[in-house]
Design a binder for these strands. Structure first.
Length: 423
RNA sequence: GGAGGGAUGGGUGAGCGGCCGAAACCGCCGGUCUUGAAAACCGGUAAGCCGAAAGGCUUCGGGGGUUCGAAUCCCCCUCCCUCCGCCA
């Protein structure tokens, strides 16, 4: 949700910045509705003021015993009440339209975000080097099937295609990864661990930004009007709805584990084979609530926490800055971490770290009381994967594979699983 | 699924047609006292909208209704709690 006052004060400026994201965006309707709303509000306020004055006089006249004057006044007030009703009906209609309009507007890109298309993302840095093989590296799906780590065929019996099922050492590896990442963020990076509900209500997704525009991406349970979470961001963004936090408590840093569910309507292709794009995957999510002055510094820190996972696993990756046109709806700035998958000869996103500034905080009405006093301010929220496995799982197999199709486990995982290799 | 109880400011919680934007307590801020702090005492302290300001208006879970006037009465909904049923 954008700040209406900001739009009103600088409509051209905001529009220009929004159009870096999408040249078709338009503010004229918002501005027109806002003006009508304020005019109606003014009229309603005036009628109410006269009603309030009148009501006080009714009480006074009753006490004084001036009944004829009292009757005359009551008749007058009755007319005012009807007038007000008419104005209020129109006002609430305009308010609803304005709210809908505002909910459909994405966040304004930060000035440090480059313009340009998806392909023009900026590579900020590269860590490590791609492993070299003296044989053609295999796809993780081939490796996983040979090593009996995944059973996609049986998973399809239970659910549908593109729902993965981890079996045997694969299941152990996935569990170990998730637990290890959670502990890393709790013990070394100071996050508060959360194991949230996986289904959440409509408001939660309105706050996070998934709704109203991206409903087709969500699995929906109509009987209860609940949605399966596509990322724990949607859940963690709602932890403090309608609260005023004390500044001393900030930043609040949460780490959650959830499975994530995405309908992936319309996506297809050979590159989506295996664990690259699935309907259900596991993710450790990092989420910050922080004061506005520190949020961009926090974004760098957050990215660092996610990178740490890959560094400890010894996986080659790169960090990219997304251009404005590729930003998620709610994000003002996003930095992606992409891990190298030699089986496909490409980098794939395993973490997307965003500063949503006050976009989600406005929708969730999450504020803080400044230390130095004054009125409550909206917090800034940040989210980032720390990390998404499934893809991480694929990277571990592909980057550490040997000619015979076995996989050498990274040190940390070898200790957790009590074995040096898979296969 | 059935029965009952509840939702009020940063927190606890009173109010049950006009004197209520709302007692009291806690917290927080300022002051007195003190070498300093604590304690004690005194004062202040909700949020939102419009407005340059003065000020006006709104808000006691949400929506609708009764009334000149609703935190307070009526109806609907949501959520929370307790008990019963079912169940990992």
């Amino acid at each position: 949700m954008l700040d209406l006052r900001r739009i009103r004060q600088d409509p051209e400026g905001i529009l220009a910045r929004l159009r870096r994201r999408n040249p078709h965006l338009d503010l004229s309707r918002v501005l027109a509705l806002d003006e009508e709303r304020r005019e109606l509000q003014k009229q309603v306020d005036e009628v109410r003021r006269r009603q309030n004055e009148g009501s006080e006089r009714v009480a006074a006249l009753s006490k004084a015993g001036d009944l004829p004057e009292r009757e005359r006044l009551l008749a007058e007030l009755k007319v005012l009440a009807e007038t007000r009703k008419r104005l209020e009906d129109r006002l609430s209609q305009v308010e609803a339209e304005l709210a809908a309009e505002l909910l459909s507007l994405p966040n304004v890109p930060h000035d440090s975000v480059p313009s340009g298309t998806k392909e023009e993302k900026v590579v900020l840095r590269v860590w490590g080097e791609p492993p070299r093989f003296d044989f053609p590296p295999q796809h993780h799906l081939a490796l996983a099937q040979k090593l009996r780590l995944l059973d996609m065929e049986r998973a399809a019996k239970l659910a549908q295609s593109r729902f993965p099922m981890y079996v045997g050492e694969g299941a152990r590896l996935e569990f170990a990864l998730l637990h290890w990442m959670l502990e890393l963020h709790v013990r070394e990076h100071g996050y508060i661990p959360i194991l949230p509900p996986i289904l959440a209500n409509r408001r939660s997704f309105l706050v996070s930004g998934q709704l109203p525009k991206f409903a087709e991406e969500l699995y929906h349970c109509p009987a209860d009007d609940l949605f399966l979470n596509p990322t724990a961001e949607s859940l963690l963004a709602n932890l403090h709805n309608d609260e005023i936090l004390e500044e001393e408590r900030l930043p609040l840093k949460y780490v959650a584990y959830t499975p994530c569910f995405r309908r992936e309507a319309g996506s297809y292709g050979e590159e989506q084979r295996g664990l690259i794009r699935v309907h259900q995957f596991n993710k450790i999510e990092l989420f910050w609530y922080i004061t506005p002055d520190r949020s961009y510094q926090a974004l760098e820190e957050l990215v660092g926490h996610a990178e740490r996972v890959l560094q400890l696993l010894g996986l080659h990756y790169r960090v990219t800055l997304l251009p404005a046109s590729d930003l998620a709806f709610q994000s003002a700035k996003t930095i992606d971490i992409e891990v190298w998958l030699p089986g496909q000869g490409a980098y794939y996103e395993v973490s997307s770290c965003s500063n949503c500034e006050d976009f989600q905080a406005r929708r969730g009405n999450v504020r803080y009381r400044p230390k130095e006093g004054g009125r409550p301010q909206y917090v800034h929220t940040l989210n980032g994967s720390g990390l998404a496995t499934s893809r991480l799982f694929a990277a571990i197999l592909e980057q550490n594979q040997r000619r015979d199709g076995t996989v050498v486990l990274p040190r940390v995982l070898a200790e957790l699983l009590d074995r040096e290799t898979l296969g």
